[in-house]
Amino acid sequence: MKSPLLTLPGAVPAEGVDEGVAAHYGDLFREQRALADGTGFVDLSHRGVVAVSGEDRLSWLHLLLTQHVSDLPPGQATEALVLSANGHIEHALYLVDDGTTTWAHVEPGTQGALIAYLESMKFFYRVEVEDRTESHAVVYLPAGSIAGIADDVVVRETAYGRDLFLPRERLEEFAAAAGPAAGLLAYEALRVEQHRPRVGFETDHRTIPHELGWIGGAVHLQKGCYRGQETVARVQNLGKPPRRLVFLHLDGSEVHLPAPGTELRVAEAPGEPEGRKIGFITTSVRHHELGPVALALVKRSVALDAVLLAGSTAAAQEVVVAP
């Protein structure tokens, strides 16, 4: 869905999966600094919105999701995954319950597939699943923001900020009061700094939760009865994930950022053959303080002190998921 906020001064449209909102409004680093200081907002109105209502909604979702939500208190934010039968990540849901309805936002364009799966699992449960993407827009407020929020707006508050499920017809009115607007590139730079994975970016067809550090945050280990649980339990108790998420500091002298999918190879490490292919870039950004940085997936066995090459760009790694 194309956001009306693309008419704001300086708005440059995002591309690819994030098409429909602004990538930036003319000054990427100023927008990042504003968010880091707790001011401004980010238009995430292209994201899918799913609402689940009905008496059995939480107990039913508890059976389908990786998170423990059967007794989720109203207003408490959480996140959860939908896995394949083999334990691979299919969807990430960013959830909050308002006392009568459980709200979730998901990756742009994926709400249809998610709803189809949920509908196929309703059976005799008293639940209703609705696509609210056309009626509600997601807006992000950074931590520390003092922007006013109407009482009837559903708020999902985390340590990183607040996600608002805002009636779409109020989006322009809210933007006029909550400015300055920050684009998606600023939001993504802070996401990378915070080591937060994103489905479709840090995941591929075989990604499992352990590789991205989603155990605990989105996967509860003391619950069962969800699709893909066997893989989670087996890796947790008996095995080790084949890959791990890392944070990379990239050589700042390079003009271009290595694109997602760029192969990572070993440049220098004791006992490692130079040039060995060990992973790939998942997201790369320019950060207002850290410079060019990235998230990447690498083989679990890669030495922690290995110097890497992303294409021709040198990269030093920080541990996100311990090997």
Score class of each variant (00 low, 15 high):
286 R>K: 15
190 L>D: 02
85 A>Y: 07
153 V>A: 13
264 L>W: 00
73 P>M: 09
277 K>Y: 01
100 T>I: 07
135 S>G: 10
111 Q>P: 02
4 P>F: 07
135 S>C: 05
108 P>W: 08
98 D>N: 13
150 A>H: 13
142 P>V: 08
277 K>P: 03
305 D>A: 15
64 L>R: 13
194 Q>Y: 05
51 A>S: 12
82 V>M: 13
67 Q>V: 03
210 H>R: 07
143 A>Q: 13
81 L>T: 05
215 I>V: 15
189 A>Y: 00
103 W>D: 10
86 N>P: 00
133 T>W: 02
193 E>L: 03
68 H>D: 15
156 R>P: 09
42 V>G: 04
163 D>R: 09
243 R>E: 01
320 V>L: 06
239 G>K: 12
207 T>G: 03
30 R>P: 02
123 F>R: 12
162 R>Y: 07
236 Q>A: 12
96 V>Y: 12
212 L>C: 09
309 L>A: 04
146 I>H: 14
45 S>F: 12
68 H>L: 10
161 G>F: 02
230 E>K: 08
311 G>Y: 00
176 A>M: 06
220 H>S: 15
100 T>P: 01
77 A>M: 09
121 M>P: 01
1 M>T: 08
19 E>N: 04
67 Q>N: 14
50 V>Y: 04
256 H>N: 12
111 Q>V: 06
152 D>T: 15
191 R>Y: 01
306 A>N: 06
71 D>K: 14
306 A>Q: 09
47 R>P: 00
245 L>I: 02
53 S>I: 04
31 E>R: 00
35 L>E: 03
203 T>C: 02
69 V>K: 09
229 Q>E: 13
255 V>W: 03
42 V>T: 14
212 L>M: 05
7 T>H: 13
141 L>N: 04
156 R>D: 08
81 L>G: 08
218 A>L: 03
112 G>H: 11
163 D>A: 14
238 L>T: 11
108 P>H: 05
11 A>K: 06
174 F>G: 10
244 R>C: 00
